[in-house]
Every structure is written in structure tokens, then in C-alpha cells.
Design a protein around this nucleic acid. Structure first.
Lengths: 121, 121
DNA sequence: GCGTCATTTCGCCATCTAACGAAATGGTAT
DNA sequence: ATACCATTTCGTTAGATGGCGAAATGACGC
């Protein structure tokens, strides 16, 4: 119950569902998510911590960057099942499709440039 | 997205998940849920309103009583899918199994007697 | 019609949550 | 070593949420 409630509470927020949907297309680094969601880095980081605690996502360090991806089955089968269902259900929504579209552009931008831009504005 | 978020927010509360799990065994009237959850009738009623707005449950009037049941597919396929998955996932948890056990006793009690008891204590 | 009774609505309070900016952390590159 | 930079942690604030009791609602039975 505790485990399932953590997952459900983690997914009871628009931005976190958008994050999960975005990650269904592959891993992303924090600065890319910040750009997508248009939230402060600190806020985004908090969301990632909540998703990670619910075992919905995993993280990987690479140099200065941290990449997040959807967690595998072995982390929490329940989390994977719920994430898969929710991703499928929101896939068609306007918001998520717009995110997917914008994400294609964001991925093209060099990460160094992306981070530099964020620190200026 | 809006529809899915309403469902996810509705299920982001322990008591509401317990209610959905309890209803998976068949319809229940409010006084039975009050007895199960040990919450104030007003609080329970609020929870039911939230579940109903998310189209997770339906209600039916019978005399003085109101019976709630899990909503059918035609109300919201998404709600039904999520409810089915969540119910399956929490089924084995201690809390939900204890609820199921206690529910068997509660159902045996005459509803008139149940309501009378609630108004006294 | 009138009281009774199950349920809902309302008003209030305590707690939680999402947001931000500022400061801390930990790795890279000079 | 030092400066830099992506990310996290901390402290604060505004708004949402869950809880209750009191009052309103609406159906039943006398």
C-alpha cells in the first residue's frame, strides 16, 4: 500500500506526469526538462526526487550532467505498470503532444548552450 | 490530460484508494463506508464526491440510502482501467485485506442499526 | 404536515505541497 | 588549487487538501 500510494501521489501532479510522458521517449537531462517545463531548476529537481523516491525514474551521472530515465521493471513492477498505463492514457492529450513536439527541438540544442541560456534569462 | 489528472488526484489519497478497493467487492452505502474507514460522514461524503467527479464511482439512491459502486467502462474507460490496475496492486496489502475482512462483518449488520450506532457515538 | 434520519454542504482549522531564489554540493576544466 | 557550472538542498510563501462539527437537504413514515 505504502509503495503504491507513493507512486499515485507522485503522479498526482500535472508536471510530473508530463515528465514521465517525456521520459517515455528516452532519457533526458535535467536542463532539458527545465527547458521543457519552464520551471525553475530547483523546482524541477524536487519533482525528480519525488519521482525517484516512488521508483518511477532512475538517474545516471555523466560528467556535469544527470540523466533521468523511466525505471526498469526490476526497480518496481508496480511503478512500471502504472507508468506505462498513464503514459498510454495521456499520450493523445494536447499538452503531451505539444511537449513531444517541443522536445524534438530541445534535444537538438547543444546541452552546453541550453544550460548557458538558462543561467542568463 | 484533464480527465486523467482528475483520476490520478482522486487516487492520491489512502482513504480513497481504500474506498475503491472496498467497492471492488460490490456496492456499499455511505454508512457502511463510514463504519469501515472510521471517518466522519461529512468527510466520507467529500471523498465520494471527489471519486464521483473523477468518474471512478457511480451512485444509486434507494430510499434513505445512497449506494456507491465502481463506475462502468462507459462512464470513463480510463477511470475503469486505472481503478482495475490500482485495485489489483493494493489487493495484497495488509490494510486492504484487513478492510475486506472487516467489511464482511459490517455488511452483516443491519443498515438501520449501523446508522443508529453512528449517530450515538 | 411533521419529525426522523441518511447524506451533503458549509465554514473553519491544521497540515501538506508546489513554487521560487539563495546558498550548498560535487564534478570539470583551466 | 581555483573557478566554473549543473544540480540539489534549504528556507520561505501562497494556495490546495483533508479533517471535523454544525447546519441544510431531501426522502420516508407517522
Amino acid at each position: 500500500m505504502r509503495e503504491i500510494m507513493a507512486i499515485l501521489k507522485a503522479l498526482a501532479d500535472d508536471n510530473r506526469v508530463r515528465i514521465v510522458a517525456a521520459l517515455s521517449g528516452g532519457e533526458l537531462c535535467v536542463c532539458q526538462l527545465v527547458e521543457l517545463l519552464e520551471l525553475a531548476p530547483s523546482t524541477t529537481s524536487k519533482h525528480m526526487a519525488i519521482l525517484k523516491q516512488a521508483r518511477l525514474v532512475d538517474s545516471r551521472k555523466e560528467g556535469r550532467w544527470i540523466f533521468y530515465s523511466l525505471a526498469e521493471d526490476r526497480d518496481s513492477a508496480a511503478a512500471r505498470e502504472i507508468a506505462a498505463l498513464v503514459t498510454r492514457l495521456v499520450e493523445r492529450s494536447k499538452q503531451v503532444r505539444e511537449d513531444a513536439k517541443r522536445l524534438k527541438q530541445i534535444i537538438k540544442i547543444d546541452r552546453d548552450e541550453l544550460c548557458r541560456k538558462q543561467n542568463r534569462c
